[in-house]
Design a protein around this nucleic acid. Structure first.
Lengths: 163, 163
DNA sequence: GGCAATTAGTTGTATAATACAATAATTGTA
DNA sequence: TACAATTATTGTATTATACAACTAATTGCC
């Protein structure tokens, strides 16, 4: 199927200037609203531990502000900083430039077709992912890459006595 | 742009049953024709060293046959084995199943639109990638992920004397 | 023909991303 | 009040990746 070609092409597109892909995902989600860490982890489909480190980098880069949630001090609130908003805009701009350039090679009809198709695909795939998240249908199951999954490590020996 | 959504969705789709993504790429390319290692590395846009290891796994799994190139004994020829062909077919099948299911939620008109758009996108992006490979336009430059790039390591001290 | 340069693939090495496990602090509940 | 559950962070191990180094084969040049 021709769709495979697209899949492989897009799979290779990972560079987001100055931030990692995971950071880019996080920035995008945060541009829509404020999140807790676990909330954002769910939104970007990353393990909490990984996201914690990812966000650490963003905070260090002053793209994200992390404040303690006063309603629950275990929790943090993550918000885009002004610089973060600018970064998102910059990434947007670059993407737009790329796709604009891409579109120049196509007729207006083709452009509309693509925009429409992309919207449909995005919508359908997202909803499908929500529905099928528990199944192992493979190859298009939008879970984290399998190669990173490893056997659960044996738990350490039972704690001796209570702390 | 809505395209971003698609990008992020597809980025998460990495699982290819029993093989890594890189292996999957390699298998796909090999399903089209036979390659040398460096040729395949260019086709899948992976460093030769990485691909060498990747192919090693495929050879171990008997999905790929690696023979010495009689015309140049430095070189190897990589061919899909029968099992490899079956694996590609199986992956194909699974992908088809996914997209078929996806399409069920869409009208026939929408389906045609998507097929058409995907074909156009794939074709245009591929040719564009060929043209712009040297530029750092970012965010959609289909190069390997930036986060894996690291500063060149200092060369070891000049070799003392010739071997 | 001999030697330097180039090439192809393999191996060494270090980095980054990732998830499971463990931990500390906090909150919820009986 | 005590214990279970929750949240974020830290520890740890694995995997994929690319640059460097290496080895062997080939090519180019004198």
């Amino acid at each position: 199927m021709l769709e495979r070609e697209l899949l492989f092409q897009l799979e290779g597109e990972t560079a987001c200037c100055g931030v990692t892909l995971a950071q880019c995902h996080a920035l995008l989600e945060l541009s829509f609203s404020e999140f807790s860490l676990s909330g954002l982890a769910a939104a970007v489909d990353l393990d909490v531990s990984t996201l914690s480190r990812t966000v650490e980098g963003l905070v260090k880069a002053r793209l994200v502000e992390r404040t303690q949630d006063l309603a629950d001090r275990r929790s943090v609130r993550l918000v885009l900083s002004a610089a973060g908003r600018m970064k998102v805009a910059a990434i947007d701009e670059m993407c737009n430039r790329y796709y604009t350039g891409l579109f120049e090679e196509l007729s207006e009809k083709d452009q509309r077709c693509i925009v429409r198709a992309v919207g449909l695909l995005a919508h359908t795939m997202r909803s499908r992912r929500r529905v099928t998240n528990g199944q192992q249908s493979c190859c298009s199951t939008p879970q984290r890459s399998n190669q990173q999954r490893r056997p659960a490590r044996p738990r350490k020996a039972e704690k001796e006595g209570s702390k």
